[in-house]
Nucleic acid binder design. Sequence first.
DNA 1: TACATTTGACCCGAC
DNA 2: CGTCGGGTCAAATGT
Length: 506
Amino acid sequence: MAHGGGEEEEERVLSHGDVVLLRCDLTILRGPHFLNDRIIAFYLAHLAADHHDDDLLLLPPSVPYLLSNLPDPASVAAVADPLRLASRRLVLLPVNDNPDVSHAEGGSHWTLLVLDNSNAVSGPRFVHHDSLPPTNLPAARRLAAVLRPLLPASAIPLIEGPTPRQTNGYDCGVFVLAVARAICNWWPTRARHSNSDSDWLEAVKREVNADSVKAMRTQLLQLIHTLIQNNTTTNQHSPSTQLPSHPSIASTSLPVTAQDFGTWCDMQSHKKVAAVKPVASRPSSRLRSFSMLQEDSTAIDSPRVTSLEEIILRRPKATRFTHPLSNSSTEIAATRLEDSGTHTAYDQKKADTGKGACWDNLTVSQSVRKPNVSAKNSLSYDGYSWRKYGQKQVKGSEFPRSYYKCTHPTCPVKRKVEMTPDGRIAEIVYNGEHNHPKPHPPRKPTLSTSVETLVATNDAGLENKLEGCDQAIGSDAVVEALRGGCHCLDGFRNGNEISDCKKRSN
DNA sequence: TACATTTGACCCGAC
DNA sequence: CGTCGGGTCAAATGT
């Protein structure tokens, strides 16, 4: 972690090109959980590796996000230049709706924006695939507006592509990957339709449905399993490791279910499972302006972003619910531990914000491991140290509630945690605001050319754990990472050993 | 010995 | 005013 808290060290389970998957990513895939940018970057890199074609470009989530949030067109042009967008026929851009790069808890929904220059009949266009329309339409429009000046055609329209509607609050990322897979499956066949207006939209309609999306998590786990088995720890790619193009394809030698895979993977590690971050990583919500990033790259102890006054992760029974970006000192988030069939929190959020986003699940719907924290004032996974001062069984709660105070002498912050017998956090509530820095300030990391480090994966909702990482991103590193992008970013696809945020921080 | 956790008692607001 | 329930205290216990 950025603050060097050893107990929250995440175990890497797979390095694939420049993308490193951590054990918590497997948890995310197993659960009904919002996919993080690492998983999305991983699978897009995997798809890209199968399509060595300059006409097709798949970008990791960090790049569109960066482009959307650069301060001026000149910076956009500088960053986008190596991507050679104008010469591509198809560009896949994952979109996240985090509206404010200064807020760590932004972002709630994944969609896929496709820059399509492959259809002679329709002409250039942006096609937006949103499984919860029109949630991400503003973000997609913003990205399209940023990209239009870089393209030869003027007034390229943005249309909504056919996308099945998700029926829960957490599968938007899976839909993005399913659509991307359908497009990549279609891509080799496009020559047959070169004289027609046929495009991938039909492929998406055909291949992306509730069943295929439902099966995709298990398939992703199987893919990771296979890659691990093949000791594919760098950018090697074998066709045999390809995620089945069709959900029905599955090796009988592999764990059948995600749960099976998780068990298998735990057994493989021969190590105690490291503390898993309490929530899914998020898009680079702390990715700031180019200049700020540059400044931050030299900052040792950059000011910490003040966290929310109170953060609550609770099961759907929660009724109090406000947006995490609000300043109100009320409960602001909800989670469920296991049940994926109810959507109380989601619905409440939707009602409160008027926005059908995946925010609740994105933010907090992660079953999490109890931090491997011993006594003696250890840092918690949130970067602060806490002293327990009470525990009781509260009515309506399935698990005992523990009460903690921040151990800083003058800090008023308290938190309540409900934990399952096996150490998973069912609910966590923060009260107040820390009046002191985290015990371990961010260290100065080394610059990396890894595009992955652009993805300032932050642990939505709870804390900003990767400050040392995203503050380390320098513009040079950004440009270097982007330079030479082929059908997929070189750094993204073939980069050197990733300078993983969490590893570097130690 | 020091410090964190445990746990029953107590406080206090809501009903 | 009594009861209930969530939050806190503090002595006992554990490491």
